[in-house]
Amino acid sequence: MSELVLGVFDPVFAAYAVFIGGLLIVAGLVLTVLGPIMKKDVSSIWRTYLGWLIMIPALLGALYLGRVATIIGVGLLSMRGFKEFARATGLYEDWWHVVAVYLGIAAVTATSLVADPNTGDAGWYGMFMASPAYIIAALMTIPIIRNETRGQLQRVSLSIVGFVYLGWMFGHLGFLANSEQFYGYLLYLLFAVQLNDIAAFTFGKLFGKHKLRSEISPNKTVEGSLGALATSMALPWLLHFSFPHFGTAELVLTGLIVGVGGQFGDLTISFIKRDVGVKDMGVLIPGHGGILDRVDSLIFVAPLFFHMVRWFHGV
């Protein structure tokens, strides 16, 4: 474990850092050269690029610092994501529920950090998995403590979705940091869901004809979606060094989870936004919208990947 603390000595981390850093530099150069040549306004792309320039060092930095920083980082992202969700739905006006969910996310983060009291393993898996039962029970008691009924079912329901989906399911990403191979798993997931997004966009632009889900996200196409799935299915083999212990079954499942789950995650946040009636969940990251607009795919992918890995290899 000690050699993992200094990520720079980890070949997987170093490979990703060099690769992603290289991509950033190349993209920056291409934008600098292409803008004047194409005589097009690339300022919105620049904003997106600057957003990446902030996010990537922050992500790599947290991972580099090791499991504690990664788990806390995921917890903070969850809280921020829940805040955006609460503000978009109006739940934020009710601070009992907001504070309760914040505490719930903090508790889940704590179960990922502490050692299992029975086995001594990093991360208290049993309590982590049991946490929804406790937190939902706690949320249910809020109307009772306050002796209120009006609108309480709606608030409790929104709180449960907020906690379970944005806190606990996303929290699997943090728990994954307890694994010996956590650099490979996390860096792969972060990279693969982005590539999945980009592939869907690119294939959609090139070949897109049929709308995928016209009511939810009118710009997505079936062609883009299939292109993304194909890309995501191929990627585990290309980046096999991230998880050298994976056999064919794990590689296929990883491709499916990212390729299918990533798109479902994207569409999940999209339908929530459509129902609520907002365009973006926030404006935290320049050119990217809010946290939830950025991590939408990961929320869906993280628990599926986690339990697949755990089934085959343990965490």
């Binding site: 978009a88 709606q154 609520v276 907002v278 404006v283």
Partner: peptide, 13 residues
């Protein structure tokens, strides 16, 4: 349908 009330400053810096 539920009555959502998004914060009015959601799209503001």
């Amino acid at each position: 349908d539920w009555d959502y009330r998004p914060a009015s400053d959601l799209d503001q810096g």
